[in-house]
């Protein structure tokens, strides 16, 4: 799932080498932290969070398959 966030983020941004993804466990779920270059923030969030929402939807589907709960945070 971490790889999935990384693939999507790298494909969306202008500076793929500045994409950093970190995953850790928090209580009952996994947290995936996504960091991108400041200029690329808009490319992973989108107007009214539309892109961020789409990333979360796709990642959630991948997590369901593995019976896991996942939260994607963009920081």
């Amino acid at each position: 799932m971490k790889e999935l966030v990384e693939i999507l983020a790298r494909a969306l941004v202008d500076q793929p080498d500045k994409v950093a993804v970190n995953m850790f466990k928090r209580e009952n779920s996994y947290v995936i932290e996504l960091r991108v270059a400041p200029e690329d923030m808009g490319k992973v969030i989108g107007r009214q969070g539309k892109i961020a929402k789409a990333i979360r939807t796709v990642v959630k589907a991948a997590a369901t398959r593995k019976n896991k709960k996942v939260v994607v945070e963009i920081i």
Binding site: L8, K50, I51, A54, I55, T57, V58, K60
Partner: peptide, 16 residues
């Protein structure tokens, strides 16, 4: 919902 989200993301990436 998932198919539409994936389609949206693929459109953005292909047209970047």
């Amino acid at each position: 919902e998932t198919l539409n989200a994936l389609q949206y993301l693929v459109n953005l990436c292909v047209n970047k």
